[in-house]
Every structure is written in C-alpha cells, then in structure tokens.
C-alpha cells in the first residue's frame, strides 16, 4: 500500500486541486487509482496520455490527473476524443464517464465510437444514479429502486453496458468493481493495450444519493454490498438466469484484437490518397517541442 501510494502521487496535481469535489467515501477515487496504476505499469510518458471526460461526478476526475486533460460537455467526451484521436493517433486516450453521461445523453456517441472501433479506452463508472445533480434516475438504475425523479420506484429497465458495447462493436469489454481495485487496474491496462475501442465498466456506488434514497447505508455498507453481490464470470456461467439475477458479474466479456483500429483504417485511406507522409510530418511537428 505504501509503495502504491507513492507512485500514484507523481501522477496527481497534488499541489493544485485537492481536496477533491467528491464526497468522502465515494468509489470514484478507487477508479482513479486503478487508472494511475495501469498507466504507471505501462511506463507511458504522461505527455502522451490524455484523459477526457463529460459532465458529472466521474467527469471531474481529469482535473486531478497530471496528464493532458479535458473536461468537455455533458455526454460528448467520446465525440471530442474521436476528433482528437484522429488528429493525433500518437496519443493514448482514456475517456472517463459516469453512467448517465456515457449512456443517456452520450448514448449515441457511445455506440458510434464502439462501432468505429476507434482506439479510445472508455471507463464507465456505474453508480446507477446521477450523483452530482442529487440522485436522479439514470439509464442503469435497477428496476424498482428509488431516485429523486423516480420517487415511486424506477420502471425503466437498465441498460446492460457490456452487451450493448459488444453489440455496438467494442474490441474489449470488461467489468469489475471498486471493491476489486487490482482487477480493475488489470482491465484498464488490458483495455489500453487493445488497439481498438475498449469499455471497462467500473461498478461503484453513490452512498449520498442512491444509498440514502434506498436506505442502503453509507460508503462502507455499500462497498460491502458490492463485494457480496459480485461474482466472477466463470462462476456466473454455472448459474441459472434466476440465480444470476441481481449479481454483479465480473470479468472479460469480449476481447478481440484482430479487428483493425479506426485511425489505422483512415491512415490506409491517406496512403492511397498520397497524403500519409504529410500526416506523419504534421504529427511529428506537433510532438514535444520544448
């Protein structure tokens, strides 16, 4: 633990923006830690790493990280990231989004980024609620649960992020939880190493809204609930659908590195059109100058 803390410290804008905006005990920080450790384990140059987000509690994450960081408009992180990746295929781009950001207002961008299989690692922190605005129902709120805009219980079925991502065309799809921080780190790294579009769902909790509205206790209780509800994919495969209901299934749901990544495909277009060298020259000029 001591060592890990030390290596993470180098990646934080510690003198600038702490303490964070997050409620104490929130799970988002665990996801941030996993991202830092994944980047660190890959020995990437922080100058080549971009963290881009939309709007919401999770989307406040980039400001704390000492990379190239961009906090965009609600739902649009992947659309901004798509332009940046195409302009600068040399950069390693991570998009961090909450469930509402990625799947409600940003749902269209999400499926299209997956369809293109563009080289962006997207991390969806799924806490089943809109935290920042005070606990409104989200596209992943389970049925019958309460939210401030579903005071009689939610009747909208939640999106299944993994299945949606696979159907839309993502190359790597995995799920873990904020309790399983090492596993989360491993999946983030695998996502970053996959050439195409990757989705890592990090199941988290929001004790201050969802927990309070549904009488689920505080951060510690909710962390325990996540731990108890979670089950590996291998174990889940042996269960019946009924037995699986309500469980958080962790694991890798899809991993296909054989499909060509989008900016590679576009480079082939530039090559055929005779402009590939110009593109390379432009990128070289853009890289570290100081």
């Amino acid at each position: 633990m001591g060592n890990e803390k030390h290596s993470a410290y180098d990646y934080l804008r510690h003198s600038k923006k702490f303490p964070s905006v997050w409620c104490s005990g929130c799970g988002i920080g665990v996801v941030m830690g996993a991202i830092i450790r994944a980047v660190d384990s890959m020995a990437l140059d922080p100058n080549d790493v971009v963290v881009i987000s939309g709007i919401g509690c999770t989307s406040r994450m980039p400001v704390y990280l000492d990379f190239n960081t961009m906090h965009t408009t609600h739902g649009r992180a992947l659309a901004f990231a798509t332009g940046l990746k195409l302009a600068r295929p040399d950069l390693q781009i991570i998009a961090v989004m909450g469930d509402g950001d990625a799947l409600a207002i940003g749902g269209n961008h999400f499926i299209h980024a997956a369809r293109r299989n563009i080289g962006i690692t997207s991390i969806v922190v799924n806490n089943s609620i809109y935290g920042m605005t005070g606990g409104q129902v989200s596209p992943t709120t389970p049925m019958n649960m309460r939210a401030s805009t579903a005071p009689y219980g939610n009747i909208d079925p939640p999106f299944r992020i993994a299945e949606l991502s696979i159907a839309a065309g993502a190359a790597f799809v995995a799920r873990s939880t904020v309790y399983h921080s090492q596993e989360l780190e491993k999946y983030v790294r695998m996502g970053m190493e996959t050439p195409g579009f990757s989705v890592i769902e990090a199941v988290s909790y929001c004790h201050t809204t969802f927990g309070r509205l549904n009488k689920l206790g505080g951060a510690v209780e909710m962390m325990r609930q996540i731990k108890d509800a979670s089950i590996t994919k291998q174990a889940a495969d042996k269960l019946s659908a009924e037995e699986r209901a309500g469980r958080i299934v962790r694991g890798i749901f899809h991993h296909d590195s054989s499909r060509k990544e989008y900016t590679e495909l576009y480079r082939a277009i530039q090559e055929n059109a005779g402009g590939a060298e110009l593109a390379d020259g432009r990128i070289q000029k853009m890289e570290m100058t100081f």
Binding site: R76, A79, F80, T82, G83, L84, L86
Partner: peptide
C-alpha cells in the same frame, strides 16, 4: 469524419483543434 450528429461533429472538431 462523418459523425453521428452535428453535436458530435463540432465536438470532434474541437478535439482535433486541441490536438493542434
């Protein structure tokens, strides 16, 4: 790139511009 809508079109443009 033809994006999925105009919102994404301008978002991608701003993203590219940030890339220089």
């Amino acid at each position: 790139i033809q994006m999925e809508d105009e919102i994404a079109g301008l978002a991608a443009v701003i993203g590219a511009s940030v890339g220089g």
